[in-house]
Amino acid sequence: MSDCIFCAIVAGTAPASVVLDESDVLAFMDIRPFTPGHLLVVPKRHASGLAQLDPEDGAKVFAAGQRIATALRSSALPVDGVNLFLADGVAAGQEVFHVHLHVVPRTARDGFGVRANAQSPTRTVLDGTADAIRSALGSDGA
Rank of each mutant, 00 (worst) to 15 (best):
A87W: 04
A116R: 11
V125M: 15
V125N: 15
I133N: 04
L72M: 14
R106Y: 02
F62L: 15
N117E: 13
R67G: 05
D24R: 11
L50I: 15
F6E: 01
S75N: 05
T129L: 13
A69R: 05
P33Y: 09
Q66P: 07
G89D: 09
P36C: 08
I9P: 07
T122N: 08
D110I: 06
A108W: 10
V42Q: 00
F34M: 14
D110W: 06
G12C: 11
L101R: 00
D110L: 06
F34I: 09
P36T: 09
T107Y: 00
R45F: 06
L50A: 10
A14E: 15
S120P: 10
Q52A: 13
D88I: 07
A71G: 14
D140F: 15
T13F: 06
S48M: 11
L72V: 12
F62W: 14
G93S: 02
V42R: 00
L77H: 07
S2I: 12
D21E: 14
P33N: 11
L137D: 10
L101P: 05
A71E: 12
T124I: 09
H38Y: 02
G65P: 03
F6I: 06
E22A: 14
V99R: 00
A92P: 09
A71I: 05
A59M: 03
R106D: 03
G93V: 04
A108F: 08
G111K: 05
L86P: 00
S74Y: 06
V19Y: 05
D54L: 03
T107W: 00
L101G: 02
L53Q: 01
R73M: 15
F97N: 00
G49D: 15
V61Y: 00
R106F: 04
G141I: 02
R134C: 04
P43I: 10
D54N: 08
S120T: 13
I68S: 03
A27I: 03
L101T: 04
A92D: 07
L50F: 09
H46G: 06
P121A: 08
V82L: 04
V79I: 01
A92V: 10
P15N: 14
R123I: 11
L50E: 02
R106L: 05
G58Y: 06
P121S: 05
A91D: 11
A108K: 13
G111I: 07
A64L: 02
H100F: 03
P43S: 10
V19P: 01
S23N: 10
D110Q: 08
T122F: 03
E95M: 08
L26K: 09
V18D: 04
V114L: 15
C4G: 06
L53V: 07
V99T: 03
I5V: 14
R134M: 04
E95K: 05
H100A: 05
P55S: 03
T122I: 10
P105Q: 09
G113R: 09
T107A: 00
S17G: 11
D88V: 04
Q119C: 14
G141W: 01
L40R: 02
T129Y: 14
S74V: 14
F85N: 11
S74E: 12
P55I: 01
R106I: 04
G141Y: 02
D24P: 00
V82Q: 03
A8Y: 00
A27S: 11
K60I: 07
S120G: 10
G12F: 09
